[in-house]
């Protein structure tokens, strides 16, 4: 059991989709009276099982809406799964594409405090690290600027800096390199590799196959919510590409 940092077993998750495509007032009125249900269910995840070891970079690839983000959200407890189990050993930080839930009206510093407290850190610990976080993100000039005035890349840098410097055991990265510039991307990769060396687990979601092939130890291809393939990066990427070409 303890050799795995993250262990997911037979995880399934359904969503209800509501369709509100009513063309006329009459139609919407009648459908309301008829109590016709305008919804269907979407099987976002279907019996997904995998393990991530300590010191491993685990990639997840798949199409948009393929269940990647849903899976990360369940691992980080934001959503709850319908069935199956998720076992996580240690502290976990989800860095999703949109940052760490920063509030646009608060300054960088206030947001770092808010997010890190929510991630379970004590105020004193954050105080010690806040200088390093700002320095790592190269945002010294903007520490007291409101997040709404930040560019997407700056927000991402701040989110990434916050999450690596609070030093979690498991790091979930969802499309984090989509907005950073080349210099910062390099810095991120170096940090991720040092995390790996220190035995931390990293789950990495990307649409860019280059980092997936270069950095991941194993890659899972999620095919419409099901496990398409788990194996070496080359294997999973070619399974994914084959699937894409068949779709066309």
């Amino acid at each position: 059991m303890s050799e795995y940092a993250v262990s997911v077993k037979h995880l399934s998750k359904k969503f209800t989709l509501y369709h509100e495509k009513r063309d006329s007032i009459y139609e919407s009125a009648t459908s309301w009276f008829q109590k016709k249900r305008h919804n269907e269910t979407l099987q976002a995840l279907d019996d997904v099982s995998f393990n991530v070891k300590h010191g491993e970079i685990f990639g997840i690839i798949g199409r948009n809406g393929g269940g990647k983000t849903t899976l990360l959200r369940i691992i980080s407890k934001i959503y709850s799964g319908d069935s199956g189990s998720v076992d996580v050993k240690g502290t976990i930080i989800p860095v999703l594409a949109l940052g760490l839930g920063f509030h646009p009206e608060l300054t960088a510093i206030t947001n770092i405090y808010q997010s890190s407290i929510l991630l379970g850190f004590k105020k004193e610990e954050i105080e010690k690290r806040i200088g390093d976080i700002i320095e790592y993100a190269e945002l010294e000039k903007f520490a007291d600027t409101k997040i709404k005035n930040f560019s997407a890349g700056m927000q991402m840098r701040l989110a990434f800096a916050t999450s690596v410097l609070v030093d979690p055991d498991i790091l979930l990265l969802d499309e984090v390199f989509a907005v950073g510039d080349v210099a910062f991307q390099k810095k991120c990769f170096d940090t991720i590799m040092s995390f790996k060396k220190r035995g931390k687990a990293i789950i990495f979601v990307s649409h860019d196959m280059t980092p997936i092939k270069n950095f991941c130890d194993r890659v899972m291809f999620l095919k419409d919510g099901k496990v398409g393939n788990i194996g070496s990066p080359e294997e999973s990427v070619s399974a994914y590409i084959e699937y894409l070409s068949k779709k066309k």
Partner: peptide, 11 residues
């Protein structure tokens, strides 16, 4: 008001 935060971090 906190939808951004709630969909990113569990609390």
């Amino acid at each position: 008001n906190r939808s951004a935060l709630i969909t990113q971090i569990y609390f």
